[in-house]
Nucleic acid binder design. Structure first.
Lengths: 235, 235
DNA sequence: GAAAAACAACTACCATACTAGTTAGTTCAG
DNA sequence: CTGAACTAACTAGTATGGTAGTTGTTTTTC
């Protein structure tokens, strides 16, 4: 496991500070299940692993705690937060609220032709991940799609909040690979979203985004059954 | 100015750690304009002011930076973020998206009688702030109203995100005292929201919440004119 | 008098040490 | 053999020192 951590550490060498680099590595590790839900961490252990002092580790833990990914218990330890069904539902609720508002705003006000073109380009690239299935790449393109849509509609804060909230959802995504939802279905949903926005059809854009955002809930019960230790006991 | 900071510091004596206490004091000071937009801060200066070490100060700065309230420039200084019209619009956009979804959810699924009663009780207490005007108290009751609505509807994450996002809006609120919007008008809007939710009228609840959330935008242009130094130059 | 160079004083970031709280393991008494 | 007491080893929180970057001031040169 430390090999994966160190591999990510090397990947993130371009970060501006040790704290930023650590934060990115630990965040990615938690989302991708390299660090498992419930796993105990400590400032000293992580500092020794990456040969840095405890302070940037501690500062990363603070940010991860803010992001709801770890729980720091004073004098006891730091624990990777288990995935909570309630937290997943809540994160989906908040993300859906924001992304639906973004889609409606984009349909109402229109998007630049260049943004529309970029969205279609991302969809073409997603299609190339569907066969053979390349989930890691699809995941990145999916994220780029939603980011481009939010920023293209002028909603930078919306994307920033969505990015934070979706960490809980991303953990479930990584747990559910191969996707319960076939990639072609997700790609169709993306296409529908862009089409309805390009047409200026506000209601259809809303419906398309809602349907898309609720897809993740379909796989949740099966995942809880397959990985009971990963999930918080409370519903 | 340091007197106000130290007064807040004394008020927050019950916090669990120095960092939590500092974070709360600094956050409240920024929101209430005790620390002005654009003002330079430093780890050492704040540490000396409160007679603590730099590390908890530094850790509070990190959280404030995450919350978009300060900007940390390595080796140069830490600055209270100026209010940005764009940031205010964006924060309002995100908050409206979330709170409208909460209101609809509450209207669809219904709220406990106890929650409805608590909301009406808060409205009664708000009325007592309207004449004579007690803006500080109204502000707290307004916040309690929205928090009770979100938590009562079961949307804890929604409230957590809203609370973070609304910091930018709260700064504008404090700048605009006395309220551009008369308190009775805001109270009427709160009443309308609860009535439509209690009736289970989803569409009316949505409209009522949208109207309420857009109220803050009415005062923005006048505030920019009155306090040009508080606002970021970029639109 | 103006411009360039040198210097001092500030900053945030990182490293290390100390302290108090918590838990697990060991020892001792009954 | 069991339970209580003690101890060691861990933890996070806080304090302090060192370093590199940045900026403002002072000095020197032309």
């Amino acid at each position: 496991m430390n090999n994966e951590l160190l591999a990510l550490w090397d990947d993130c060498a371009s970060e501006s500070s040790v704290r930023q680099r650590l934060y990115r590595v630990l965040r990615q590790s938690i989302i991708r299940m390299v660090l498992s839900p419930g796993q105990a961490l400590s400032e000293k252990e992580i500092a020794d692993t990456f040969d840095v002092s405890r302070q940037p580790v501690r500062e990363s833990f603070i940010r991860l705690s803010e992001a709801g990914l770890v729980e720091v218990r004073p004098q006891r330890g730091t624990y990777v937060v288990k995935v909570s069904q309630a937290a997943v539902h809540e994160a989906r609720f908040v993300r859906e609220a924001i992304e639906v508002a973004v889609a409606k705003s984009a349909a109402e006000q229109g998007l630049d032709e260049a943004v529309i073109a970029e969205l279609y380009d991302l969809i073409e690239r997603q299609k190339r991940c569907a066969s053979p299935s390349d989930y890691d790449r699809f995941f990145l393109l999916d994220e780029a799609f939603h980011r481009t849509l939010s920023l293209g509609a002028g909603h930078h804060s919306a994307w920033r909040v969505t990015e934070e909230v979706k960490a809980q959802l991303d953990r479930v995504r990584y747990l559910s690979v191969p996707e319960t939802t076939p990639l072609p279905k997700l790609i169709d949903q993306h296409t529908r979203i862009v089409e309805t926005i390009a047409e200026g059809n506000v209601e259809a854009a809303e419906v398309a985004m809602r349907v898309h955002q609720r897809e993740i809930l379909h796989s949740l019960p099966e995942l809880v059954a397959r990985f009971p230790d990963m999930f918080d006991a409370k519903s």
